[in-house]
Simulated assay, not measured.
Amino acid sequence: MSGAFPLSRTTDPASETDRRGILAAPGFGRFFTDHMATAVWTSATGWHDRRIGPLAPFSLHPSAAVLHYAQEIFEGLKAYRHADGSVWLFRPEFNARRFARSARRLALPELSEEDFLTSVEELVRADEAWVPTADGKGSLYLRPYMFASKAFLGVRPADHVTYSVIASPAGPYFPSGVTGISLWVSTEYTRAGRGGTGAAKCGGNYAASLAAQTEAQQHGCDQVLFLDETGGEGGLEESGTMNLCLITAAGELVTPALGTILDGLTRDSVLALAHEFALTPVERAITLAELRSGAADGTITEVFAASTAAVITPIIAFKGRGYEFTIGTGAPGKHTLALREHILDIQYGRTEDTHGWLHRVL
């Protein structure tokens, strides 16, 4: 597939009045822009029919493989408007490489980094009016995804696949301020096992987390914390939608090692920034027993979660069967808030991008 996604503009765009009303309070994932990127892959011809066209429903045969065997993957990244009106992506190459890795794991065709970037860039250019103003609060969330659109029943890789990118304006993840969340430590459910799809960004992982998320809410918690296959006092993995990070009194920034968890972009960025905040980045196994004892004796001073949607989310309390405990004073920690602000400052162009992470689109 070549790099170009030619544009065919919609004849029925949202009115300026409607768009302004949506951008004033977009929430997250509630509204969508006027266009979408699409491309098709078949085993006979490879990638073709690439385009940017009007946002429209897909027409799928009831036997489409994705509906029966969940052969699909997705990504999530954002476009940010800077004070001078320009529009930038944050580390989109990372998303492109992870998308390719997820495709290999789900036996889907790989999309080149160039084609991934081009499809995202051209959609942002087509729907530039939907990128929120440069107030440092809103962004345009982009969702590239790929699914098996072949009509057949049978457990084998599909030979007809559809790729698409849609966009959704997003407001601040914490409209009332960053106050911190609580996690329910699940011993009933595990997120992934060795050799499974834990490192891939596929819908099945998230569907399987919903029961655990419901369990967390029933116990008065905001999100779930998954443990590894050993359960009980086993190793920490990640939250339902976010990677987990701990800060110790000794100045370490500790996060569970990769393998059965998602290689998160924000997690990776935090590890790269750690030294700038006098923290030593460490990737290793962390047990629930270590978390509980560290919270009790003060050797673990802060805990936060990292994701594209929320950037950095302070975690201030944990609850499990027969116990609960807080982290530090029960308020967001200073390193957590400083890392969050620094990443946001880079994304919105308020500080120098010394890592070369920003990618200009307009």
Score class of each variant (00 low, 15 high):
Phe5Pro: 01
Pro6Lys: 04
Arg9Asp: 15
Asp12Lys: 11
Pro13Val: 01
Ala14His: 15
Arg19Met: 13
Leu23Asn: 07
Pro26Gln: 04
Phe28Pro: 01
Asp34Ser: 13
Met36Ser: 05
Trp41Met: 10
Ser43Trp: 14
Ala44Gly: 01
His48Gly: 04
Leu55Ser: 14
Pro57Asn: 00
His61Leu: 09
Ala65Asp: 14
Phe74His: 08
Arg81Thr: 05
His82Asn: 07
Asn95Arg: 04
Ala96Cys: 00
Ala103Ser: 09
Arg104His: 05
Arg105Thr: 02
Leu117Trp: 05
Ser119Ile: 07
Val120Ile: 02
Glu122Met: 11
Val124Arg: 00
Arg125Ser: 06
Ala126Phe: 10
Asp127Phe: 05
Glu128Leu: 15
Ala134Leu: 11
Gly136Asn: 13
Lys137Asp: 15
Gly138Lys: 07
Arg143Asn: 02
Tyr145Val: 00
Ser149Ile: 12
His160Gly: 10
Val161Ser: 06
Ser164Trp: 10
Pro169Tyr: 06
Gly171Phe: 05
Phe174Trp: 12
Thr179Ala: 14
Val185His: 05
Val185Glu: 07
Ser186Trp: 03
Ala192Val: 11
Thr197His: 06
Gly198Cys: 03
Ala200Arg: 12
Gly204Met: 11
Ala211Glu: 11
Gln213Val: 12
Ala216Gly: 05
His219Met: 01
Cys221Ser: 13
Asp222Gln: 13
Val224Asn: 02
Phe226Ser: 02
Leu227Pro: 08
Thr230Gln: 13
Thr230Trp: 00
Gly232His: 10
Gly232Asn: 07
Glu233Cys: 09
Gly234Ala: 08
Gly240Leu: 06
Asn243Gly: 04
Ile247Ser: 03
Gly251Val: 05
Leu258Asp: 05
Ile261Gln: 03
Asp263Cys: 10
Gly264Gln: 08
Leu265Cys: 12
Ser269Cys: 09
Ser269Tyr: 02
Leu271Phe: 11
Leu271Asn: 08
Phe277Cys: 02
Ala278Asp: 15
Thr280Trp: 02
Ala289Trp: 07
Glu290His: 13
Leu291Gln: 00
Ser293Ile: 14
Gly294Trp: 03
Thr299Asp: 05
Thr299Ser: 15
Phe304Lys: 03
Ala305Leu: 14
Ala309Ser: 13
Val311Ser: 02
Phe318Tyr: 06
Arg321Val: 14
Gly322Thr: 00
Thr326Asp: 11
Gly333Asp: 04
Lys334Ile: 12
His335Ile: 01
His335Tyr: 13
Leu337Glu: 04
Arg340Pro: 08
Glu341Tyr: 11
Asp345Tyr: 07
Tyr348Ser: 08
Thr351Gln: 06
Asp353Ser: 08
